[in-house]
Nucleic acid binder design. Structure first.
Length: 853
RNA sequence: GCGAGAGUGGCGGAAUUGGUAGACGCGCCAGAUUUAGGAUCUGGUGUCUUGCGGCGUGGGGGUUCGAGUCCCCCCUCUCGCACCA
């Protein structure tokens, strides 16, 4: 056996071995319990980063562990391949998005394979593959049939220069992230998925996902934003019109002294009187300049304008002025709000600013609010006043009573409102899944017939980044005959939001080659749901909510049989690193710094704060270079050892060195002892130091098993293996009988490490004389017998402070333990001359002697 | 403002059920080996007194024989949501 550990050779050797033997290939097997482990698939940017290394290292530990435990483990990998970077590459470098994407996939696959991850590569696919698009388009057609996909006009962020819609995160301070021109609101016809139909179910299930982190569930609940309230109709004075408002506080209806509408409200123009025309117009222009982001930022000054019209408070009969207000949102509730200044801070401020009346209708016990002297709105509970027949009711009870009263008179009704909006999926992009619809002048929007799927993207496109979607200008693509009437018609040129692809890929992994539909129900029923999903917290809402929604849709379309896609979710923390900055040259890459000085000018660098690795701050480590230097096993080991998975991981070169040293230490432990243990006898009863090592070995198996299984505390699992290795170094084998114990300890280290550093484990396992691979004998099992000791050491406290330690027989009763504790010389010093009040014995732990005087 | 989480040595982090705080690793110190450095091996390393011992888990209070852990108040930080009617 080589004295020197050389990761390069070993890692290549075993990666080839795994591939040749198709070690990680799986098929459905009814006789075996399945385990579906999935990490969020990557966008093929071309280069993996440390976040990927961490994500996939964590996943691989679980996959390999479960496989060793005898599960039939599905562990697939693929590519979230549609998206803007491919189009940007096309615009900047003239390379076709498909070529760019598939080349990136090829090079990223090699990089992932270098990490030695146990994927079933047979199942790999990219979401831009025509076969994937085909089934996604079919799912859309089925949703269209069910009314779950529909078209409507909606306001979007529009860059007039780029002629395209921008996602909220692509708008920076009101300007386009690419051309830096002002973004506008624009009404566009867009396709939507009716996620709101599933709002209640999505919400209810957040209470039934115990395997998810509470904060992710909280974010989703918050996002769905269900609130109970009342819809109330306010008649407009001298008009047949009625304005519908939504409120969660029908109990304050008597306090509504004015009304405010969103500037976009459809009635806004009708309600504006001739005299207010100019003022309203000026206000609308001001609002138009405030983009969507700023409108909802909360920092915007509250502004409004009187329309000149009045409506009638249905309960007081009073005429109340109607305002337009910049902070009222058209897409929440009804776009109109009854304003109760006494009990809502926003309208309190608004009323003070525009000198509108304030009417107190809720009075808490022991206080008397007067509109003139109130400093802020009272939003707490209380008893109704100034509310006619409802006076004296507790406000919670009044909510019910007033709602019932309105319902009776047909002026309002109880409703439920959601913050969640339907999911707009249209994108004016080239590099996405074409939406399979045809527009005909006679027949309207006609679904593409199933047999014509997939609608493929035309390859001969010119991507310039200007003039809108290239598909909208591509005549051959657009020109099509109507499937219904045969007349010339036009193809839909929008493509899907890329979140659509990632909403069902996990199910497709169960049957990646299935040709008769999106999903092979039998295979999907075997593998789904995903038992453990692992990925970044940044997907807490969008991706995870859309995937849950899609799963329910697919269930209702009869394509699969589960309610939820992911039973357990692990959200791993970010990979962070210290930033370094030269006063002359700005941010510096770690390799540009030597001895704390800038490599360019020699000036001492300033150490910045530790933050998420990013190219802009140059605090990045390239996984490829890391593997070149230390090997994949070291890279994996450090990613797992430096922090528990949910926490942020601070990258640290010296920590990597430490892991590399540990691997070298294991290597030497085996190579130095190989001769001694090569042909040793079976393990017999042992005593002394050998018994201790034997016990330590079994303690470690127990600890590592418990740390990995369910707890995902890989850092402590590794720490305990390090302890066992330290014990091996401290063990001096004497004579024949010690060799089997040493062998057991070394074999255990190698087997326990298999999920973490698989190449090293495989190599050492082979060196130890086994031919079938380190996973073959399964996960090591500890023996309870081996954990037992004849004596244990107990801590003796006097008044809660440690004053001594005593050794007692394991089975000693409390009396014996107490006697031993009291006999300890140091303990006696502290109890001498004092009265013993109480002695507490905690079996196996400690003795506490309580004294006084 | 609302919601979630965190605060422990010089650093990353342990302490799973209220029971020896600081496992393991990094760094640092010493010794062995070596011509030297590196690598390796061994030992030490919270802090104050360097005796016994005192203090110590963001701060203050409480429950308990015993609190990093439970309860109350406060401070700081991170993340998410936020004019949501």
């Amino acid at each position: 056996m080589e004295k020197q550990y050389s990761p390069d050779q070993i890692e290549q050797k075993w990666q080839q071995e795994w591939e040749q033997r198709q070690r990680f290939r799986v098929v459905e097997d009814a006789g075996k319990e399945k385990f579906y482990l999935l990490e969020m698939f990557p966008y093929p940017s071309g280069r993996i980063h440390m976040g990927h290394v961490r994500n996939y290292a964590i996943g691989d530990v679980v996959a390999r562990y479960k496989r060793m435990r005898g599960y039939n483990v599905l562990h697939p990998m693929g590519w979230d391949a549609f998206g803007m970077p491919a189009e940007n590459a096309a615009i900047e470098h003239g390379i076709h998005p498909a070529k760019w994407t598939y080349e990136n996939i090829a090079s990223m696959r090699v990089q992932l394979q270098r990490l030695g991850l146990s994927y079933d590569w047979q199942r790999e696919f990219a979401t831009c593959d025509p076969e994937y698009s085909r089934w996604e388009q079919l799912i859309f057609l089925k949703m269209l049939e069910q009314g779950l996909a529909y078209k409507k006009s909606s306001s979007v962020n529009w860059c007039p220069d780029c002629q395209t819609v921008l996602a909220n995160e692509q708008v920076e301070e009101g300007c386009c992230w690419r051309c830096h021109n002002q973004v506008e609101g624009k009404e566009l016809e867009q396709w939507f998925f009716k996620i709101t139909d599933y709002a209640d179910e999505l919400l209810d299930w957040t209470e039934r996902l115990p395997g998810w982190p509470e904060r992710v569930l909280a974010m989703q609940r918050n996002w769905i934003g269900k609130s109970y309230g009342c819809e109330i109709e306010f008649p407009v004075v001298a008009s047949e019109q009625k304005i519908k408002v939504f409120t969660t506080r029908p109990d304050t209806l008597f306090g509504a002294t004015f009304m405010s509408l969103a500037p976009e409200h459809p009635l806004a123009a009708d309600l504006t009187t001739a005299g207010q025309q100019a003022e309203v117009q000026a206000f609308l222009e001001t609002v138009a300049k405030q983009d969507k982001i700023a409108r909802t930022s909360g920092e915007l000054e509250k502004q409004g304008v009187f329309t000149g019209s009045y409506s009638i408070n249905p309960l007081t009969g009073q005429q109340i002025p109607i305002f337009l207000a910049n902070f009222v949102l058209m897409d929440y509730g009804t776009g109109a709000v009854m304003a109760v200044p006494a009990h809502d801070q926003r309208y309190f401020e608004f009323a003070r600013k525009y000198q509108l009346p304030i009417r107190v209708v809720i009075q808490p016990e022991g206080e008397t609010f007067l509109p003139e002297t109130m400093l802020e709105a009272w939003v707490g509970p209380g008893v109704l006043v100034n509310s006619g027949r409802f006076d004296g009711l507790a406000n919670e009870a009044a909510k019910e009573k007033i709602a019932a009263y309105l319902d009776e008179r047909n002026e309002g009704r109880k409703t439920v409102n959601y913050r969640l909006r339907d999911w707009g999926v249209s994108r004016q992009r080239y590099w996405g899944t074409p939406i399979p619809v045809i527009y005909c002048d006679c027949c309207g929007a006609v679904p593409v017939p199933e047999q014509d799927l997939p609608i493929l993207l035309p390859e001969d496109v010119e991507l310039t980044g200007e003039g809108g979607s290239p598909l909208a200008r591509h005549q051959q693509f657009l020109a099509v005959d109507c499937p219904t009437c045969g007349n010339p018609a036009r193809r839909e040129s929008d493509t899907f939001d890329t979140f659509v692809e990632s909403s069902w890929y996990f199910a497709r992994y169960a049957c990646p080659d299935f040709e008769n539909g999106p999903l092979d129900r039998e295979a999907v029923n075997y593998w789904m749901p995903v038992d453990q999903y692992i990925g970044g917290i940044e997907h807490a809402v969008m991706h995870l909510l859309y995937a849950r929604f899609f799963t329910k849709v697919l269930r209702d379309l009869g394509m699969l049989d589960v309610d939820e896609p992911f039973t357990n979710l692990l959200t791993q923390g970010m990979v962070c690193m210290e930033t370094q900055r030269c006063p002359e040259h700005g941010w510096l890459y770690p390799e540009q710094v030597s001895d704390g000085k800038c490599g360019e000018c020699g000036i001492a660098v300033e150490l910045g704060r530790t933050e998420k690795m990013s190219k802009s701050k140059k605090n990045v480590v390239d996984p490829n270079q890391l593997i070149d230097l230390y090997g994949a096993d070291t890279a994996r080991l450090f990613s797992l050892f430096a922090a528990p998975p949910e926490k942020d991981l601070e990258w640290n070169e010296q920590g990597v060195e430490g892991c590399s040293r540990f691997i070298g230490r294991i290597w030497r432990a085996v190579s130095d002892n190989l001769q001694l243990i090569e042909n040793c006898a079976e393990l017999q009863a042992v005593e002394g130091a050998a018994a201790e090592l034997h016990r330590k070995t079994h303690q470690t198996i127990k600890k590592v098993t418990e740390d990995i299984d369910g707890r995902f505390h890989f850092n402590t699992a590794i720490a305990s293996i390090m302890e066992l290795v330290n014990a091996i170094y401290g063990f001096k084998a004497e004579g024949e009988s010690d060799a089997p114990v040493l062998r057991e300890a070394l074999e255990t280290v190698v087997r326990l490490l298999a999920p973490f550093v698989p190449h090293l484990s495989e190599e050492l396992w082979e060196q130890l004389g086994y031919a079938d691979g380190v996973e073959a004998p399964g996960w090591p099992q500890w023996h309870d017998d081996a954990l037992k000791t004849s004596e244990i050491t107990l801590v003796v406290q006097v008044n809660g402070k440690v004053r001594g330690k005593v050794s007692v027989a394991t089975e000693a009763d409390n009396q014996a333990v107490e006697a031993a504790a009291l006999a300890d010389p140091n303990v006696q010093r502290f109890i001498d001359g004092k009265q013993i009040r109480k002695v507490i014995c905690v079996p196996g732990r400690l003795v506490n002697i309580v004294v006084s005087g």
